[in-house]
Every structure is written in C-alpha cells, then in structure tokens.
Simulated assay, not measured.
Amino acid sequence: MNNFYDDNAEEFFKGTVNVDISYLYDDFLSLIPDNGNILDAGCGSGRDSKFFISKNYNVTSIDGSYEMCRVAGEYLEREVMHMQFQEMEFENEFDGIWALASLLHVPSDEIKDVLKRFKNALKENGVIYASFKYGEFEGERNGRYFNDMDEKSSNELFEKLGFEIIKTWTTQDARKDREDEKWLNIIVKKINF
C-alpha cells in the first residue's frame, strides 16, 4: 500500500488537496471542544489538517507514506509524522480522530488492533470519524489494499470494540468523475467501562 502513495504522492496531492468535503466536517467538529486535540490519521494531502488548524484546533497529522508526509508537510508548513496505525502508542491525547479514507486500507485481520490503538489514543468520550468505500469487498484494487464496509459490518466492528455509534450515512465521492463511487461514513464515541 505505501508504495502506491510513495510512488504517486504528487499526483494524489494534486487530485485531492482542493476537493471540497467541507460537508463532512460539521458533524465531527460539533463533538470536539473548542481548541480540542485532533489526530488526522492518514492525512494524505493535508487538506483536512489545514482546515482544522484554521479553526484553531490542535492537530497532529500522521501518514504511513514517507512521500505523503513530505508533500503534506510542505503544504501545511509543519511536520507530518510518518507512522503506521499499527505503530500508534498515543494514550488519552485526542478529543477526536479523523480517519477519512484511511482505515479502509487496514486488512480485516489487523483492524481490531488498530481500532484498539485509536481507542487508547482518545480522551474520555472522544470520537472517531471514519470513511470506507461502500460494500463488502476486501483485497487489492488498483495497486492498493481495500477493506470495504457497509452499515452492518462497520456498526458491528465498532460496537464490539466498545464504541457507541453516533451516526452512519452514505455519500457519493466528491471528486470529479468519481460521483458513481459510494462511501460509508461513520462517527463513533468511545465508551468508558
């Protein structure tokens, strides 16, 4: 997976940095306190980090691709941490985790561990926004690994790991010429036992 983004970082940046997904921000940000801490997990171009920073949130941006970290870091004019989700060891640091089109690259046999790491990274009542390509496919597609989700599979996954489902909805791809692609969006809250 990382080779795809390392090999295509500049093209991916140009194809995503100006895509308007502002309609996705409100539900997530309504659950984050003013000046709260957000982890942009798999930040890609840095577009969403830039928006959150402009709204005075404290943003930590990470990506699993060295080249995406480089181009996003140049765009943001700040460091983007190179880190795989499987390496995360944050503890009680974030009010919210933004995982737009990033968790979808985690295989099903690794995603529970990754979500446990996300949960550990969240403060009490912290929230996660995540998006997945809609469906039941898992495997390689166009040089990248995808783990698609639908409402049933995503809700079961997050609930089993101790999250409360706040909202699940579908959207069309916001990129030009990709409107026929459907996305599953989910917002969940950490439940403290």
Rank of each mutant, 00 (worst) to 15 (best):
F193A: 07
Q84C: 07
K160P: 01
N125W: 03
S61I: 02
F90Q: 13
Y23E: 10
G36T: 04
F28L: 10
L24M: 15
G64I: 04
R70K: 15
K189A: 14
C69D: 09
V188D: 08
E74G: 06
T170I: 12
V59R: 12
K152D: 14
N58A: 13
F12C: 01
E87K: 09
H82R: 13
P33E: 06
T60A: 09
Q86E: 15
K152A: 12
C69L: 11
A72H: 01
Q84V: 01
Y57W: 11
S153K: 15
N142L: 02
N35V: 05
G46E: 08
N142V: 00
E138Q: 13
I165S: 11
Y66C: 06
D20Y: 11
F13K: 03
D150Q: 12
E181P: 00
Q172Y: 06
M88S: 10
T60H: 11
A101L: 05
E10C: 01
K189G: 05
W98G: 00
K119T: 03
H105M: 06
E140S: 01
A72N: 04
F118M: 09
S54F: 10
D7F: 00
P33G: 02
I97C: 10
N2S: 07
Y129I: 10
N3F: 01
P107G: 10
V106E: 09
F28G: 07
T170P: 00
